[in-house]
Simulated scan of single mutants.
Amino acid sequence: MDIKLELIGVPVTDIDRAKAFYERVGFHADHDIPVSEDIRFVQMTPPGSACSIAFGKGITEMAPGSLDNMQVVVTDIEEAHRELTARGVEVSGIDDQPWGSFVHFADPDGNRWAVQQTTPRNS
């Protein structure tokens, strides 16, 4: 049996602000659909990812900003740091650990993300 993780709900307060932020990060806007008065569904996918995020109105009951340590993986953490910084995303410095190198950022609601290069830079 295959089990594939394909969609993660992200709790946000301002749908358009969140969409603009994730586009700046580099996510592709797959869907932005007003389903009804009570539901607006926005789906965005990081480049090269099989898993997307979704946010909007009526999507999740989680508190905005409550996601902690969502993680994406890149092949070159230095390039990711440069590119995110150039796009105006406030990122941490590069954190080297024995299991990989990381930069961190948060969306406007405080949902926290880690960007990981799975091999340490210093190996």
Rank of each mutant, 00 (worst) to 15 (best):
G65E: 10
V10S: 09
T60I: 08
I77D: 05
Y22A: 08
N111W: 02
T45Q: 06
K4N: 13
A86V: 00
F105I: 01
E23M: 11
V103R: 01
V73D: 01
H31L: 15
K57E: 13
I15C: 13
P98I: 01
I33V: 15
G88Q: 02
M44T: 02
P46W: 02
H31T: 14
Q97L: 12
Q71C: 13
R87Q: 12
E78I: 09
A50K: 14
L84V: 05
M70F: 11
T118L: 13
K57S: 08
H104S: 12
E83R: 15
F41K: 10
P34E: 15
R17M: 08
V10D: 08
S52D: 03
G9A: 15
F102T: 02
G65P: 09
N69E: 12
P11H: 07
R87S: 14
D16R: 14
D96T: 14
G48I: 07
V35W: 10
L7W: 11
L84P: 03
V73L: 06
Q116R: 13
S101H: 03
D30V: 09
T119Y: 08
A50R: 13
I39V: 15
S66F: 07
V25D: 04
R17D: 09
E79R: 13
V10I: 15
R40F: 04
H28K: 15
D107C: 06
S36I: 03
F27S: 01
V115I: 15
R112D: 07
Q71N: 07
F102C: 00
D109H: 08
S101R: 03
S49V: 01
F27D: 00
R112W: 06
M62S: 11
V89T: 01
